[in-house]
Amino acid sequence: MTTVGIVGAGIAGLHLGLALRAADVDLTLYADRPPEDLAAAPLLNTVAHHHPLLERERALGVHHWPAAQFGYGAHHHWIGGARFAGRFTHPSCAVDHRLYLPRLAGDLEARGGRIEVRDVGPRDLGALAGRHDLLVIATGRGALSGLFPRRPEHSPHDAPRRLLCAGLYAGIAPAEPAAVTIGVAPGQGELLEIPMMSRHGPVTALLFENVPGGDLAVLNELSPAQDPALFRKTVLDKLREHHPATAERVLDDFALTHPSDLLQGAVTPAVREDFLPLGEDRFALALGDAHVVVDPVMGQGANIASYSAGVVAAGIAADTVYDELFCRRVARSREEVLLGASAWTNLMLDPPPWLDELWRGLAADPRRADTFTDGFDHPDRQWRLLATRRRVRAFLSG
């Protein structure tokens, strides 16, 4: 019987494990901490799950937060001086991963997947490879950070392009209709306002994407645990100055829901090699953040991780030999979507001047604004629309 080892218990590892159990593949998932401990952990992310990911949840039987009840169906954009709304064909949904991941870990164990809590470092990979036909590395953190070499032709940045300050807040009147608001403060960064389900019930996630050295970078220097009043005042001041579309809906009881409901940090976008030989014709396959890391500004990270997990699961189920040929076939199968998401996100982090034509065109054409918004479901299609000035003009001219 085929046996697979998965290192990492994030969405990539769990979706892969659930898909493999549906195909009756034996697996062990190696987690660096018990999944139930996540409930008391600091905020992990503010990710939104788009329709293709929700469809995979339905297929796996883990769609515990139905988008019809908990989701939203549109984006409000404030970009380049243009204001426009775009509607999704199918709704998206955002759930705090401190609720989401432990629930899916329970589903995996109930279906026969083993979860082993242990720290895994580079020196452990050879021994683990001897226990499994294929080893999948689904975490890019800790001792395994940078395990797979960067692909420089797809990794233009060697440092973070934004400082991230993400938190869960009460006291913001929801947008009408329910939607994510994406605002751009020229030269300062972006703000994503996301309706999210949390342990507190429905809340608003604010993800500040701040340009290093800019006026908003101060948000990454303040601690709500040390001085909650100063943190609240600074957030309010910066909203009013740089992100009025959200500030105009702030209520008197505006506050961070809890000091642990904040994430401050940064990521360096990178595309890494798909696999690594471990000797004796055994391989480690990269998945999730171990493979492709994107800045969260376009909300693609969890979505492409889940997509990639589905491709890997299908490849494992369709083969019996997990050698270099297998790894290269998997790489080709998932490349267009993953590289499209990475390239599109990097374009938005360093927008060329001609993108202003796009924003003006979308503000003038609601139908194309809907197409652009639906592109969040399909990053490969979005990249084909936006990759060059010529493509943008072709999209707008129809």
Rank of each mutant, 00 (worst) to 15 (best):
P195S: 06
M197C: 12
M197E: 14
S198D: 06
S198M: 03
R199H: 13
G201P: 07
P202F: 03
A205Q: 14
A205F: 08
A205T: 07
L206F: 08
L207A: 15
L207H: 10
N210P: 00
P212K: 13
G213F: 04
G214K: 05
D215L: 10
D215V: 13
L216R: 14
L216G: 15
V218M: 07
N220G: 15
L222S: 02
S223I: 01
A225N: 02
Q226H: 11
D227N: 15
P228D: 05
P228Y: 06
A229N: 05
F231P: 11
R232W: 13
K233E: 15
K233W: 04
T234D: 13
T234F: 11
V235Y: 06
V235C: 10
K238I: 13
K238G: 05
L239M: 10
E241A: 15
H242F: 15
H243N: 10
A245V: 07
E248Q: 13
R249S: 12
L251F: 00
D253Q: 09
D253E: 14
D253C: 01
D253V: 03
L256A: 10
L256H: 06
S260H: 15
S260M: 11
L262Y: 03
A266D: 10
T268I: 03
A270L: 04
A270S: 08
R272V: 01
D274L: 11
D274E: 11
D274N: 12
F275H: 06
E280C: 08
R282E: 00
L285V: 04
L285R: 01
G288C: 01
A290C: 07
V292M: 11
V292P: 07
V294N: 14
V294H: 12
V294R: 08
M298N: 11
G299L: 02
Q300R: 05
G301F: 05
A309R: 00
A314F: 08
A314I: 07
G315Q: 07
I316S: 08
I316N: 04
T320G: 15
V321S: 09
V321H: 10
V321R: 10
Y322L: 02
F326T: 01
R328N: 07
A331M: 06
R332M: 09
R332L: 13
